[in-house]
Structures are given as C-alpha cells and as structure tokens.
Amino acid sequence: MTPPRFKSLLNAFGPFLGLLLVIGLFSLSSEVRPYFLTGANFKIILTQTVIVAIGALGMTMIIISGGIDLSVGSVVALTSVVCATLILKKHGVVETIGLTVLTGALLGLIDGVVIAGFRMMPFIVTLGMMGVARGVAKWLADNQTVNAPDSPINNLMALSQPRRLFPLPAGVWIAIALAVLMGVVMRRSVFGRHIFAIGSNEATARLCGIRVPLMKVVIYTAAGLFFGLSGLMQFSRLTQGDPTVAIGLELDIIAAVVIGGASLNGGTGTILGSMIGALIMAVLRNGSNQMGWPNYMQEIIIGVVIILAVGLDQLRQSKTAR
C-alpha cells in the first residue's frame, strides 16, 4: 500500500512536471528564448489560457462525474454571438454578462435533463447539442460575424501595457478566482464529494441515497455556466460575436482535464491539475507560434499530446485497478 499522501503528490506533480517540461523544451531554442521567457509573453499565454481554463472548470466536474461534454465549442460560439447581439441591442453590462452566462447554463440544463431523464449517453446527447448550438449560433448571427460597439466587456481580455507581466487582464483574475472557488467546492462541499461518488461508482451513490439524476442535471447546468462565461471571454478577445469560432475547443478542454490527471472513467481529477493542463495547451500553442511552426504542425503536436495524455491515463488505471 503506497502512502496516500505520496500518491496524491505524484498525481499533482505529474501535470506540473509536464508544464515545466514543455516550457523547458521551447526554451532550448536560443532564437526563441529571449521572446518566450518574458513577462510580456507569459501575460499573452495566461490570457490565451483563460477560455480553455474556464471551460475546463465545468468540464472537470462533468468528467469526474463520469460524463463528457462535446458541445463546448459550439456553446462558446453561441454565447459569444448572444453577447455581441445583446451589446448591439444596447443592454447594460451586467445584464449582458448575466444573460450570456445564463444562456450557457440553459444549454447545460437541457443536456442534463436529457441525459438524466432519458438515461442517455452524455457522449451522444452533447454530440447532438454540438450541432444544435452551432446551428443556432449561425442562425442568430445570420451566418456572419456580429460586430458590437465598444463596451466595458471588451476590456476583460485586453492587454494593457503589453511589455510587462502586470497588470493582468481582468479575465485572468476571474479565471484564477473561479478556479480557487471550484477547487474548494470539489474538495470540501457535499456537492463536490457527491460528484466524485457518482463518477467512482454510480450504483453505490444511488444506494447511499444520493439523488443521481438530479445531481447530473445540476452538474451539466453548472458546467454550462462556465461554458457561457468562456463564451463571454471569447467575445471579449475578438470583440465580436463569431458563430464559426471555437471549433474543436471541447477537445482542447477535454485534453486539458485529462492531462491534469482526471480519468475519463470518472471518479478522479483535480481542478488544479486541469488548470495546469490548460496552461500546457496554451504554452504548446504559444511556443509553436514563436518557433514559427506552421498551423498544421501545431495540430499534429496537440493531437499527439492528447493521445499521450490518455495513454498515461490508461497506464495509471491499470496500475490502480489491481
């Protein structure tokens, strides 16, 4: 029996070492290093992480509960269009933010109700939602980008003083604050621990009086809140609502969560790990750009990283399954 502390340390350190490794590899190139290892660049990396990181907060909940959500990219596109449209129609800032985030929650609620109510596979339901949300986004935007007038929301992701690390954009601080909150919720709240219980052994959870269907609805709805917020950040970054944006974003998010130590079979995962996973994805993209690697190269690298991460997950599984 391995001491539990050592094991959990190892689980937390794995992704962290991965992050250091990726940063280290890019730093090897003497051409890239002067630009790569600067406060200004890390500010860019952190800002680029925000959308994936906030999405990963919701996805971590879902994956720990033994589910999956493939609709995130579409939901982000739709909510970014919703956000742009609301600003265009001269709604207040608070109202716009609220309604945008709630749109995400509504889509999550629909997913959750269908998954729990009809006992359907999350994979299929959210695959359907992926198409529905993308279609609605294009419909709402009339198949083009929605340009919104300047508003305070644009500043959430804006890089003021681009030569220094600080001040960080508000979006980064929001992501960090939410990550801390979710970390505590997952570890310390009854709700969080029941998510782990459902993912670990659903039959047992039911036997212990946990209302599994209700929990699933709440989990997907709460995750939808985060996806809606991701959409808001997406809008802020482009300062326009684009219905064709964020295609395949869900895969980056799932990869981040899995790299962070969550198992696709449910029952394991940490918020901290997922956040580091999101950073790894951002560093990979940023580093590849700095190296001047073409886009197709990045796609290949990210694909390989996803497979490696899931492979590691399998290895971990086979070790603990004994």
Binding site: F196, A197, S200, N201, A203, T204, A205, L207, G267, T268
Partner: peptide, 11 residues
C-alpha cells in the same frame, strides 16, 4: 461490495 473505489474510507 458497494464502495466508491476512488473515495477515502471516511468518505
């Protein structure tokens, strides 16, 4: 046995 394998004994 009906246990959640990933959770601790006390949980």
């Amino acid at each position: 046995l009906n246990l959640a394998p990933h959770l601790s004994l006390e949980e």
